[in-house]
Write a protein that binds this DNA or RNA. Structure first.
Lengths: 308, 308
DNA sequence: GCAAAAGTGTTCGTGATACACCCATGG
DNA sequence: CCATGGGTGTATCACGAACACTTTTGC
C-alpha cells in the first residue's frame, strides 16, 4: 500500500479515541403527540473531512492523565450541560487497516443516560450540536449508526431495567413516570398495577413523603432510587463459596501497560489502584460516580406481557 | 515529569494491546479429587521488566490489518493449540498516566472458552506457558488478577449459561456432563432431573442418536448444541414493533477512525463492512466464527436452587 | 440381583398476568 | 357528581423446586 513495509506498519502506534452515546428520555414539545416519551440523543456535526457536514457521536482523544471514564465525561460535556446518571463502557470498536495509512484505529465507546426532567433543554446554543429522536436520526458519519443501534439494543435488553430506568427519570419520580419509562424503553405495554407492586417489592425504591400532581387529578406519591440495601435479611442468605456479590469489578481507574514483548505476551494494567471517577481532574458533576455493578437481579425482568 | 510539556504529552499516541483470558474446564489429573471439574487458564511468564518472572495474560499488539478479534485469536494461539469455541470482548481497561512517561495505555481484553475434552493437554512444551486452576493462580503482573476476576464473574453471572456451558464441554456431550459444567461454573448444586428437563425444553440441544458410557454403568444419550432455530412456532409470536432479535450487533469487522478534531467531536468507524472473523489473514482454526448474539433467553437462568 | 447412574412422574409453592375494583382529587 | 388517574385486591395459571420413582446397564 505504498506506506512502508510490513514491519514498519506493525510498529505504528494505533489511534484511539473515546466516543459516547448519550441517551435522554423526553417529549417532542413541538408535536402534539408530545406525551409520548421517546429516546433522544445529541449529535455533533463534523466540520472537517471525512464525512464533513454529517452528524457524529461526540468524542475525544485519550489523555494520559485521565481515565477512560473521564474521557467519556469530557466528550459528554462537549455537547450538553446535562449530568449523566449512568455511564458505562459499551464496546470497543476496531478493525482492519483501511483508513489513515495503515494505522490501527480504535474507538472505545461509552453510553450514558441523562435525566428526564433536565432533558427539556434539548435546545443547544451551538448549531453544530443537536438532539435527535432515536427514530429520527440523520445520516451518520463512520459506522456510528451501528454503534447507536448497538447501544439501544443494549439498553433494551442487556442492562437491568430498574437501574437504568431510575437513571432516566429524575431524582424523584412517580411510579407512573417510571412506568412510562419502562414502556418507552421496551416498546411493550406493561400492566401498571403489577408494575407498581413489583417495583415496590424490589426494595430498590424509597418513598419520599411527598406527592406530585402530574395531570389535573389525584396527585401521586414520589419515590427515589435506593441502591439496594443488601444488609437486610431478605430471605435466608446462603453460604456462597465463591461469588462475592459485594464488589463491582468494572473500574476504570486502572491503566493499561503494554510491554510490546516479542515473546508475544506481557501486557497489562499496572496496579490495583482503583478510583471510581473521583480522582483529581474530574470536572464538576454533582452526580454520583455512576459506577454500577453488572450483577443480575432485575425485579422487573418478566414484566413484559406475553400477549394481550 | 521531565518528558516534554503538557501539550506534547497530550498529542502522544496511546499504547494499545489486546489480552485474552482463556478459560477451560478440566480435572486436575494428579490429584485424586480428579473428578471435580474446575476452571483452568493458561498464563505466560514475563521475560522482561516490568514484572519479570511473574505470570501474565497472553496478549499482543494491535495490527492495522487485523480485527480486534483476530488479534485476540493470535494471542490465544500463542499459548495453546486448543480451538476457542467462544470469544467475546470483555472490557477495555485504561487509566491515568502513571506508566511509561505519560502515554495513555489501554488494554482491550477478550475472554475465550475452549472445549473440555481437548483441555487434557494442560501440559505445554513451553516452560513459559502454564495452565493454572482458577483457585490456584500465581502472582500476576500488572492488574491481571482483577481482569481475571472480572472475567470469572462475568462468566458466572452475565452471560447466558446454556451458550457458555455448551461451549465449555465438547462438541458432543451427555446431560450429566453439561450438568457438571453448570455446577462447576456456578458453584451451586443443581437438581439433575430439573436440569435435564429444562435443557431439553430449551430447544437448544439436539440429540445425536449415540450413547456414551461415562462410568461403568448405564450409558447416557449424547447431545449437541444447536444455535436456536428461531423459525419455529414456539408459542404465539407477537408483533414487536422494534426489537428485531435476529441481528447481532457485536461485530469486530469495523474499524475505528478518529479525527482528532479540535472541535471536540468527530470520531468514528469508517463504514459498515462487517466480517465476523473469516476475512483473509485469519489463522486456521476449524471452529465456527464464535460470533454470538448478546440476546437474553437463558432457559436455565433460574435453575440455581435457593437453599437445600 | 445389586449398585449406580440414566431418565420419568408428580406434588407443591411461588410468582407473574390479567382485570375488577375502590380511592382521591379537580372541575 | 363525574371524569380521571392513583392505588389495591384477587383469581388464574405457568413454571420452578423438590423428591420419589422407574429403567438400564455392568459386575
Amino acid at each position: 500500500m505504498g506506506l512502508g513495509n510490513v514491519s514498519e506498519r506493525r510498529s505504528q502506534p494505533p489511534q484511539v479515541g473515546v466516543s459516547v452515546v448519550i441517551l435522554a428520555l423526553g417529549t417532542d414539545g413541538t408535536n402534539e403527540d408530545a406525551n409520548r416519551n421517546r429516546l433522544w440523543l445529541p449529535l455533533v456535526r463534523r466540520v472537517r473531512q471525512p464525512f464533513q457536514g454529517m452528524w457524529a457521536l461526540p468524542g475525544g482523544n485519550l489523555r494520559a492523565d485521565r481515565t477512560l471514564e473521564q474521557a467519556a465525561y469530557a466528550a459528554l460535556e462537549s455537547t450538553t450541560d446535562l449530568h449523566p446518571r449512568y455511564l458505562e463502557q459499551l464496546y470497543t470498536f476496531g478493525g482492519p487497516a483501511r483508513s489513515r495509512g495503515g494505522l490501527p484505529m480504535v474507538s472505545i465507546v461509552y453510553w450514558a443516560l441523562v435525566g428526564q426532567a433536565e432533558a427539556r433543554a434539548f435546545k443547544t446554543g451551538d448549531v453544530n450540536v443537536q438532539w435527535f429522536p432515536e427514530d429520527g436520526l440523520p445520516g451518520l458519519a463512520f459506522d456510528h449508526r451501528e454503534i447507536i443501534d448497538y447501544a439501544l439494543q443494549r439498553l433494551r435488553t442487556k442492562i437491568e431495567y430498574p437501574l437504568v430506568a431510575t437513571r432516566l427519570v429524575g431524582e424523584e419520580f412517580t411510579l407512573a413516570q417510571l412506568h412510562g419509562v419502562y414502556e418507552a424503553i421496551t416498546g411493550e405495554t406493561i400492566d401498571l398495577a403489577n408494575f407498581r407492586r413489583k417495583m415496590l417489592a424490589s426494595g430498590q425504591l424509597e418513598g419520599t413523603g411527598r406527592k406530585r400532581r402530574e395531570g389535573r387529578h389525584r396527585p401521586a406519591a414520589t419515590y427515589r432510587y435506593v441502591p439496594e440495601e443488601d444488609g437486610g435479611d431478605r430471605h435466608g442468605q446462603r453460604d456462597r463459596g465463591n461469588d462475592p456479590n459485594s464488589h463491582d469489578p468494572i473500574r476504570n481507574g486502572s491503566e493499561g501497560v503494554h510491554g510490546n514483548g516479542p515473546d508475544g505476551t506481557g501486557m497489562g494494567n499496572e496496579t490495583d489502584n482503583r478510583a471510581t471517577h473521583s480522582d483529581g481532574t474530574d470536572p464538576g458533576t454533582d452526580t454520583q460516580p455512576v459506577s454500577q455493578r453488572p450483577a443480575a437481579e432485575d425485579p422487573l425482568a418478566a414484566l413484559i406481557p406475553s400477549r394481550r
